[in-house]
Design a protein around this nucleic acid. Structure first.
Lengths: 213, 213
DNA sequence: CATAAATTGTTGAAAAATTAACAATTGTTG
DNA sequence: CAACAATTGTTAATTTTTCAACAATTTATG
């Protein structure tokens, strides 16, 4: 399903809608109102309606939106038909956290391999994912046609890993190391730093507190 | 240091600037140009200059910005003078990852306690952080005047934890569980879901790929 | 010492994102 | 069956964010 260019933020929210809807869906509850979705995502109902308008979904004027249908539709926009394969590079606490947390949550994305330098971890598998030595990254990624890499190695190793991933032909990288990376424009890069996130919370917590005092 | 209201996005970037600058600072390199900062954050030089203008920092026309001074100044805006204390709730892989990753990286934020249900982990300490049973959360948070909580427990437990944190008087919550929470307006809440992030990468990787084909 | 090159600081324009407003619809209630 | 209440879908207005343009300044260069 190809939609005319959706706004960047709308795409981000679509994933979030789906996540919230999956948590909401139950026998008793088959429909949901825009304001219910809004409440869960801490946004306004208008925004929800606007986003759904953009993807061409119509709800029922009295009952709201059909949860199942909407989940289905978001899938057709967000997912690729054939699915995408994912590798986690770095099997420290964060890598492990990602793998176990992800397990079985989405069916169009599959974590198919993990990489580490520690010989004890290699070839053992973790939570059903095979663990390879980092030296064979390019080879394995190519062989299994992995298109997305998640970097959870320490900062100093991150640039090399990124380079290897690009060489191996991945289309997207999610970087959890604090080291800013540079990749060619045809590879999509997203960076997330937990400390920055915490600092943001700290800042607004402080500000919020002053405001409500 | 209190600045007139900085744009939300600018605040987010200030943390990122500081992170990048900390990684850049060295004996040989004492100054940095706007386009160098921009490159690291994948934004434009104009945006960097604009942000710095907003916080009232002036660079040297020929040498660029003094890295040390700038780090210092960002600190005075972003940090609180006395510092803030942080607790991590849930000592699974993610909680551990956060704690070890954070260790020694910032001096105005201190992770002072962790909480878990597993009796084996309790009272042992992890990476220098004392681990308590979750039942004593309210008590410990109050006692140590902890103002920020990081939630890394499974989804079903998250709402209870959030409630307890609010009761204990934290000012900000960083939620890594996939369950959307609701807290009173005087508590700042930030939510991050790794799967949503991965989905975003997957979507734009796909799109990017089509564009460059 | 004049010219060129590089960079900052800033204003104003442009683009993106959010919000407000409201008609249209549909069930409900007195 | 008329008035009301609740909700969607959509357009228009507003706000926020980004970007482009350029004067001003400084150093280097011939």
């Amino acid at each position: 399903m190809y939609l005319k260019n959706l706004p960047h933020k709308t795409v981000e929210r679509l994933s979030q809608y789906r996540r919230a809807l999956l948590l909401t869906l139950s026998k008793e509850k088959t429909h949901v109102f825009s304001h219910e979705i809004a409440l869960m995502l801490h946004i306004t109902p208008v925004q929800v309606r606007r986003d759904l308008m953009l993807i061409g979904y119509s709800g029922n004027l009295r009952k709201g939106y059909d949860i199942k249908e909407l989940i289905e539709l978001i899938g057709r926009i967000v997912d690729t038909e054939k699915g995408q394969r994912v590798a986690v590079i770095g099997l420290g606490n964060l890598g492990k956290a990602f793998i176990s947390y992800f397990k079985g949550k989405r069916n169009k994305l599959t974590i198919i391999a993990a990489f580490d330098v520690n010989p004890e971890k290699i070839n053992r598998g973790f939570d059903g994912v095979t663990v390879y030595h980092i030296n064979s990254l390019v080879e394995v990624v190519k062989k299994h046609n992995i298109s997305i890499g998640i970097i959870t190695v320490p900062a100093d190793q991150a640039p090399d890993i990124a380079e290897a991933l690009v060489e191996a032909g991945v289309k997207g990288i999610l970087n959890y190391s604090p080291k800013p990376l540079n990749v060619p424009p045809y590879v999509y890069l997203e960076e997330y730093d937990m400390i920055t996130s915490l600092e943001k919370v700290a800042f607004f917590a402080k500000k919020n507190d002053e405001r409500f005092k």
